[in-house]
Design a protein around this nucleic acid. Structure first.
Length: 495
RNA sequence: GGCCCCGUCGUCUAGUGGUUAGGACACAUGCCUUUCACGCAUGCAGCACGGGUUCGACUCCCGUCGGGGUCACCA
């Protein structure tokens, strides 16, 4: 039997990082066994902007390079892949359940149920709906007056249900704890616990891997599965993702607070910051899963080869931005030039530093800058953050660097001498520049650091960055000399 | 509140009765070095608590505490 997994987001907001991890586990499991990963849109609620939201979701998956074998835009033999378009299947399943005698018409009103809930609350007991017995006459009257009714599943009491969860292990649940639940609303809308089961069966899903908040929901679903006469899929409930440095669950309500603390919880935020797709995938795979006691870095192929649900932890894991960043740095180092160039261009364009489309000259400069930046480039956006001065003729001086390296006695005089040096360096290339600066330091009796650092700040505006000679060369003789002049002017005006 | 899940360094984790409790990120220090980054070396730091079971518990059992979920005509 081929393994079939699915990820079924509701098209409401953006993709949450925890959801991405759940999807990744599903994807890895399917790929590990040469099976299929299915994307299904749980839109029973019929939100307004479904198309737009689905577009963002599929873009996200494409960015992650987690392609789905069946689902929106690609179709498949078990479509449609939108719950809102599968009404006929739910109708069929409802008929089956009616024939099996496990569902009934519930004519209760909001007010009636509210009374029950209040009573339960007062008695400090959990509220559980049980079938209200009506006389035949009442039933006939309700029917005649067309009173709306919901379809409820009649839960058999006194049974113990056992689930062998692939992550949590054996979990038992008594059906006395489950109230009769609605499977279809009066308006005909099927509800999650029912629709999702019907879809999983029809789509031949073999492994349901989802967030642990669904663990309790699994038991009513098991009842539906049984009544449908279907073989239940295997279940695996993965723990939630907690906030950095704590075990508190991440909450959508705290989005603003996270924003302030610099915690990224939505996929699009990582895309916007210039993260490498595979770095995120590697990090998320290791969040709650491990292969052994040492390996942290995995290629995509290794992940697929080594993933297993048995090694998914049963306790929550908290997001660690520092570790993600470390993994990001590793994979960025490994990334081929071509990928770095392609990844950086959008950020340069957005900053207005290159034209759209990028010119051949700028592309060549970009490659040289990426080479010079080396492993200082951690994310694609770093090209702008650390290398702006290569592309922009204007230079902005970092006040701290100026204070530390330029506002020192004798610096303007030295900069004049260095300007003269650059003017006559011939040819203006790396080895010649390096020799010239070395000779200058020696002749003037200065330490290299006392020459190099002020010169770096004067020509780049920054105290940190690539090697000085790379900077001097790539910025070019004319721009270097203009910047030195500007720095001297600034120092003399400020002194 | 009932029921269910979970609890090893700050964080991610290894560990299934006998280990100096291992690795990684972060942090600290040193080395390398023109800055930063990389790299290398060293260090700091953990079995939530209390009872059992056992010759012996991080590992098994019970309880407490803490975190989470669920108890919807949401997903």
């Amino acid at each position: 039997m081929t393994v079939r997994t699915r990820f079924a987001p509701s098209p409401t907001g953006y993709l949450h990082i925890g959801g991405v991890r759940t999807a990744l586990f599903n994807w890895l499991l399917a790929k590990r066994h040469g099976g299929q990963f299915i994307l299904r849109i749980d839109d029973t609620d019929q939100e307004r902007h479904v198309d737009e939201a689905v577009g963002k979701i599929v873009d996200g998956f494409r960015w992650l390079d987690m392609l789905w074998d069946e689902g929106p835009e690609v179709g498949g033999p078990h479509g449609p892949y939108y719950q809102s378009q599968r009404q006929h299947l739910y109708r069929e399943a409802v008929d089956k359940l009616i024939a099996a005698g496990v569902v009934y018409r519930d004519y209760s009103t909001d007010a009636e149920r509210e009374v029950g809930r209040e009573a339960a609350k007062k008695a400090k007991q959990p509220y559980r709906f049980r079938r209200i017995e009506y006389s035949d006459a009442d039933l006939k009257r309700f029917e005649d007056e067309g009173r709306p009714f919901a379809l409820r599943f009649e839960v058999p009491t006194g049974r113990t249900l056992v689930l062998n969860d692939l992550v949590k292990g054996e979990v038992s649940f008594n059906t006395d704890e489950i109230g009769d639940f609605v499977i279809v609303r009066p308006g005909g809308q099927p509800l999650y616990n029912f629709a999702s089961v019907v879809d999983d069966v029809e789509m031949r899903i073999t492994h349901v891997v989802r967030a642990e908040e669904h663990l309790s929901n699994t038991f009513p679903q098991l009842l539906v599965l049984e009544a449908l006469g279907a073989t239940p899929p295997a279940f695996a409930h993965v723990p939630y993702v907690a906030e950095p440095g704590s075990h508190a669950k991440m909450s959508k309500r705290k989005t603003e607070e996270y924003e302030k603390r610099g915690i990224l919880i939505f996929l699009h935020q990582y895309i916007e910051r210039g993260y490498l797709p595979h770095a995120l995938v590697n990090y998320l795979a290791r969040l709650g899963w491990s292969f052994d006691d040492t390996q942290e870095l995995f290629t995509r192929a290794e992940l697929i080869e080594k993933f297993s649900l048995g090694r998914v932890n049963s306790s929550p894991a908290s997001l660690d931005p520092d570790k993600l960043f470390w993994i990001e740095g590793h994979w960025m180092k490994e990334a081929p030039m071509e990928e770095k160039v392609a990844g950086a261009i959008p950020f340069l364009k957005a900053a207005g530093l290159v034209s759209d489309p990028i010119s051949d000259d700028d592309r060549a400069l970009l490659e040289a800058v990426i080479l010079a930046l080396g492993d200082r480039m951690k994310t694609f956006s770093d090209v702008v953050k650390l290398g702006r001065f290569f592309f922009d003729d204007e230079v902005a001086y970092d006040p701290d660097a100026v204070k530390k390296r330029l506002r020192k006695p004798g610096v303007p005089e030295m900069l004049r001498e260095l300007d003269a040096l650059l003017a006559e360096t011939e040819p203006y290339d790396l080895p010649t520049l390096e020799k010239a600066v070395h000779d200058y330091a020696e002749k003037s009796g200065r330490k290299m650091g006392d020459v190099v650092n002020p010169l770096r700040v004067a020509t780049t505006g920054q105290g940190v960055g690539p090697g000085l000679y790379d900077c001097l060369f790539l910025v070019g003789r004319d721009r270097c000399r203009a910047r030195i002049a500007k720095a001297i002017g600034m120092l003399e005006a400020g002194a």
